[in-house]
């Protein structure tokens, strides 16, 4: 228990240090853009494929369910709300933790194991400013963008199956969606994705930065990144959903 509280405190102090240096990271747009590319663009394929397949599954399941109540006209509305408010942010964050989070943790962990971070520190260059802050910001910016792409492709996947295969009315599909999805729904999904982006990036850079300088240490840091990110995403999803309802 005490250990857990101690670790939370250490993470909070680390976050303060990272945030302090993040302001300066905006002064190096090249490094920041590179990290957005690494965390975001390199995760695009898995995010797009997952979004498409999840949308297709939603198209099947929701159509089948709504058909029982004679309300297949609500397919567009139900799928869009499910994706924008809940599934999009959560699934994207979980995938992001598995793809970009592990890459961040292992990259920083290896830099630590090969004395690169120590070398920077000895050259009077703060490794938190140079290595951690751009990666943290890169993840924070990339995840909401990935979530938006996931949502769009998910909706396209639902339409592909629901309308194209199951025979839902296309006009109703889009008009119901347009009428039901309000700005605050999009806002809710956006807030969630920003919070998840901060959580995933923070956990990844923290674990990588504090990895033991051994092969096993880097492996453990990577594993902890995925496990802790997944738990925190689901925990914060509940908290945020409760707040928004």
């Amino acid at each position: 228990m005490l250990r857990g509280v101690g670790k939370l405190g250490a993470v909070a102090l680390f976050l303060v240090r990272v945030l302090g240096q993040s302001v300066l990271a905006f002064g190096r747009p090249g490094a920041l853009a590179r990290q957005i590319y690494n965390s975001g663009a390199r995760s695009l394929v898995i995010i797009m494929l997952s979004g498409l397949f999840l949308g297709m599954v939603l198209g099947l399941q929701l159509f089948d369910l709504l058909q029982r109540f004679g309300s297949t006209s609500a397919l567009g509305e139900a799928s869009a709300l499910a994706l924008i408010k809940e599934l999009g942010p959560v699934i994207t964050a979980l995938l992001f933790a598995g793809r970009a989070g592990t890459a961040l943790a292992s990259e920083i962990g290896l830099m630590c194991a090969t004395d690169q971070l120590a070398a920077m520190d000895m050259m009077a260059v703060d490794p938190v400013r140079h290595v951690v802050a751009p990666r943290f910001l890169g993840g924070l910016i990339a995840l909401p963008l990935l979530t938006a792409i996931f949502d769009c492709i998910g909706i396209y996947g639902t339409q592909l199956i629901g309308v194209g295969m199951m025979g839902a009315e296309p006009g109703t599909f889009w008009s119901q969606m347009q009428g039901a999805v309000a700005v605050h729904d999009v806002y809710e999904g956006f807030i969630k994705s920003v919070v998840f982006g901060a959580l995933c990036s923070l956990i990844a850079v923290y674990e990588g930065f504090h990895a033991q300088a051994t092969a096993e240490g880097v492996g453990l840091a990577t594993t902890r990144t995925v496990v802790n990110s997944a738990v925190m995403i689901l925990l914060f999803d509940y908290v945020l959903t409760a707040v928004f309802l």
Partner: peptide
């Protein structure tokens, strides 16, 4: 400082 393994970035 020169590290044992060079510690190049």
């Amino acid at each position: 400082m020169l590290f044992q393994n060079g510690a190049l970035l």
